[in-house]
Amino acid sequence: MKLNTMKRPKLFGTVAALAIAAISVFFISADHLDGPGVSGTSSDIADFYAFQSPDPNNFVFVANLQGILSPGRTTEQAIFDENVLTEFNIDVDNDLLEDFVIQAIPSGDYMYFFGPAAPVQDQNRSQLLSSIARDSVLISSVTDVQIAEVNGKKFFAGPRDDPYFFDLNQFNEVINNEDSEGFDNPGTDRYAGLNVLSIVVEFPKSLLPSGTVGVNPFAPDRPIYNVWVETKRRR
């Protein structure tokens, strides 16, 4: 175990820092690695969001991984897999090929980010963009929130409330034609009270060339990007 695997405490004062440091040591010593509830699903994408920031000059991309983490031990022990690359893809010219990517790869206590920049890859195979400057953020814990802000970009990686709201069980019955009565009212939010591991990136739109008009028939005059997220495992 390395010293730099320790979470850095947020300081309210020396006493609080000592207490948090001691707690951190205890958790790391107890079990630093994945619990049975999260192993084997480290590349599973739960959800993807892409939206204009409250600052209209910026975009926000969110990838949620390893969905449905119960509060407590399962969330505290959930970790990002160091062999899984999360890659946001941006197609500018509507040929469905990514022109820019934002890569996120964890190592030690940090999540490292590359981009947005042109990819070096064959679509479903990627390499890290090692020739360009990278950004990083300390991976947050449940109680220690870390945000990095560099050159107009913002980064977060760590546990969050699962933002999805959804009556999953009823939905499956309806989609599979097993329920002719329709949905319950009110429905039951399957994701209530549960957490997820999130990667959140905010970046200036000015880092991208303009999108393509005419792609979205419901907003024909607004330039559009095709965006999606992928997880890829190191081989």
Binding site: F156, Y191, G193
Partner: peptide, 29 residues
């Protein structure tokens, strides 16, 4: 098919944050 066009779960169980990272803090035990 109005009985099939809404799951009647209209919003998240926690309010989102107005500032980065926008997603709400995780639930704790």
């Amino acid at each position: 098919n109005p009985e099939f066009t809404s799951d009647n779960v209209p919003a998240n169980d926690k309010p989102f944050s107005p500032s980065f990272p926008y997603l709400a803090e995780p639930f704790q035990e």
